[in-house]
Each structure stands twice: as C-alpha cells, then as structure tokens.
C-alpha cells in the first residue's frame, strides 16, 4: 500500500511537468486553432536562457522572470515570422513549419550551449518530505511545481472567462471575421495568445529543469505525452490538459512501478486510442472545434 501511495505521489509531480507543457499547447490551440510542435523547443531554449542567468547571478526568481519574458518574445517571433504568413493559406503547412522551427531551435541550442545535459539547481529543497517515520516521494520543490501549475490554470481560466482580453482572444480564435466585425483587434489577440503560450511553456521548462536535466533534446518525449494529454483533455480545455497531464504522469508511474517501464508508451497509446474511440473530441472538448 505504501508502494501504491509512493507511485501516486511520484506520478503527481511527474504529471505536473506534462501538464504544464500541455497547457502551453492548449493556449496556442485556443489562440490560433493549431498545434505548435515547436512548443517544447521554445521551452527548452528559454530554459537554457534561464540557466545562463541563474549560473551568472545565482538568482532563480530573476532567471524565471527572464525566461518568461524570453518565452513570450520567442512565441511572438515564431508567430510573426512563421505562423502568420502561412496560417491562413495552409494550416498543415503551418504545422510543418513549427517542426522546422523545432529542429532549428534544437540545433541552435546545441550550437550555443553544447549537447551535453546540464543541471539546474532548484530554488527550494528537493528532498522528499519526512512524515510518519518515512520519506515520501514529494518534496517542497514538487509542492512548488504543483502549486504553480494550479495557480497557472486558475489564473488562465480567469483570464479567459472573466477578462475582456481573454474573451476577445477566444472570439478571435473561434471566428476571426465575426470578432473583427465586433471591434476586436484580432491580430493583437493572436499575438497575445502566442505570447501567453510561450510564457507558460517557459515557466514549464524552468520548473521541469531542476527535477531533470536540460539538453537540446531532453523535452522531446514530453511533446508526445503533453500532446497526448491535451488531445485526451479536449485541446480547448485548460482543465482537461492539466487533468490528463497529471493522469499521464500517474499512468507512467504506476506502469513503471508495477510492471516494466517499457510498457508505459504502449499503455499510453492504448488509453489514447480507447479514449478517442469513446470521446472523439476529447473528454472536455466541445463538438464545435474546427478541424486543422
């Protein structure tokens, strides 16, 4: 039983990492109705920026803030240079373009920071908490990551439901023509969407890094799991992304604990297929979502 609880707790902290990246994918989807495969590349790149800041100043908060800024800027750059010129004429082309950006970002990071994995010192203790005479696989740092994830999803939900900016962003994404006629500055909304997604991804990267290592390809597998989580959750749903991001973390943890870790990708594939069979638009998805 303690094993089971250990696997669950471990799965929670791992799942938070997937959830954060899934959040960023959902934000881009909400903004431009497309999947940004460069998201993990952008997050990787800004995490390297944060690492550089932290190593030179030793200030984690500053590093996080710079990463958030860099993430937002990188998101806007990708949107302006790549997505906007392509998106309207060719949405599949836009997806391929994000792959191109991902490859280029990974190579660029390799050029600047080298290919060897680098560590990231956590801002708070990462040792498991001791309780009832044993150490549990959850640390103060995990609690920070989980709280940050919860705060982000609540904040973003409020942004999209309570503020005019958020409502305008959703309107622009759902129907740009109608939004424009209603006086929404659609272009500005799309830029905001990409900036917020980039910043969210950057926060995810900086939060993941201390629990892991950073290298140009280290987030690759995250893309797969985050995308899976976002798709099961319904792509348009922030709460869905977080729920199934953490759910994916739990599945991987339980499969790794009770059987062979190598079964985890296969179990994830089977769950994904079953889920899409029962809920073709994701669990929290709306049927109104348009196709790519």
């Amino acid at each position: 039983m303690t094993n089971f609880i250990d696997y669950l707790l471990g799965g929670f902290s791992n799942g938070a990492v997937i959830a954060l990246m899934a959040l960023a994918l959902v934000l881009v989807w909400r903004s431009t109705r497309m999947v940004n495969f460069a998201q993990v590349g952008q997050a990787m790149f800004t995490t390297y920026v944060a690492l550089t800041i932290q190593q030179s100043t030793g200030n984690w908060v500053l590093a996080l803030l710079v990463a958030i800024g860099a993430g937002a800027i990188l998101g806007v750059i990708v949107f302006f240079l790549v997505i906007r010129p392509v998106k309207n004429s060719d949405s599949t082309g836009a997806i391929i373009a994000t792959f191109g950006v991902l490859i280029a970002l990974q190579a660029g990071a390799g050029m600047i920071w080298g290919g060897d994995p680098r560590g990231f010192i956590p801002p708070v203790d990462n040792a498991g908490l001791e309780f009832a005479g044993r150490i549990w696989p959850i640390s103060p740092y995990d609690i920070l990551v989980l709280s940050a994830t919860a705060a982000l999803v609540i904040g973003l939900t409020l942004l999209f439901t309570k503020t005019s900016l958020g409502l305008s962003m959703r309107a622009s994404a759902f129907n740009p023509e109608v939004a424009r006629l209603s006086g929404v500055r659609v272009n500005r909304m799309l830029i905001s969407g990409w900036a917020i997604a980039g910043a969210t991804g950057a926060i995810g990267g900086v939060l993941i890094a201390p629990a892991s290592t950073i290298s140009p390809n280290s987030f690759d597998i995250l893309l797969v799991f985050a995308f899976t989580a976002a798709v099961i959750g319904g792509l348009d749903s922030l709460i869905g992304a977080v729920t199934f991001g953490i759910g994916t973390g739990l599945v991987i943890s339980l499969v790794s604990g009770y059987s062979d870790s190598g079964n985890a990708p296969i179990v994830a594939l089977v769950l994904l297929a079953l889920n899409l069979l029962l809920k073709p638009d994701g669990v929290f998805g709306h049927h109104g979502a348009r196709s790519v």
């Binding site: 995308f227 899976t228 990708p265 296969i266």
Partner: peptide, 20 residues
C-alpha cells in the same frame, strides 16, 4: 471518427507506440 488535431494525436501516439 476523429477530426484534425485528434487524428494527429492518435497518429503521433502510433509513431511512438508501435516502435516501442
């Protein structure tokens, strides 16, 4: 039964899951 990104998600799962 799937549209757009959901199909992409399923096929991405295939691309990773089948070699595994």
């Amino acid at each position: 039964r799937l549209r757009g990104p959901y199909l992409a998600g399923l096929t991405l799962g295939l691309a990773v899951g089948v070699p595994a």
